[in-house]
C-alpha cells in the first residue's frame, strides 16, 4: 500500500485532514488520536489488511510511519 493511500484512510479514521499528516507526524498531537480514534484505527487496519492489531501495540506507536509499519508490516501478500 502506498503511504499516501494509508494516510488518506488514517485521516478519515481520525477526522483529520490528510494534508496535515505525514510519516513524521506525532500521533499524540492529533486531536482525533483518542480512545475512539484508536478504535477507528483498529477497524481500519482490520478492514484493509485483515489483521487485528492490539490496542497496546497501537498505543506504542509514536508517529504515523510507525503506525503504518505496524499495520502493513506483517501483511502476507
Amino acid at each position: 500500500m502506498k503511504t499516501s493511500d494509508f494516510i488518506e484512510r488514517l485521516a478519515e479514521a481520525l477526522d483529520a485532514e490528510s494534508s496535515e499528516l505525514e510519516g513524521e507526524t506525532i500521533l499524540d498531537t492529533l486531536e482525533g488520536w483518542d480512545s475512539l480514534g484508536h478504535l477507528a484505527t483498529i477497524a481500519m487496519v482490520d478492514e484493509l489488511f485483515g489483521k487485528t492489531v492490539s490496542a497496546m501495540s497501537l498505543r506504542r506507536c509514536r508517529t504515523v510511519a510507525e503506525l503504518m509499519d505496524l499495520a502493513c508490516g506483517e501483511v502476507t501478500p
Binding site: 480512545s35 475512539l36 484508536h38 478504535l39 483498529i42 487485528t52 492490539s54 490496542a55 497496546m56 498505543r59
Partner: peptide
C-alpha cells in the same frame, strides 16, 4: 473502560 482493548477482543 479500555474501549480499544475491548474492540480488539471482539474482533478476535
Amino acid at each position: 473502560m479500555d474501549g480499544p482493548r475491548i474492540f480488539e477482543f471482539c474482533l478476535r
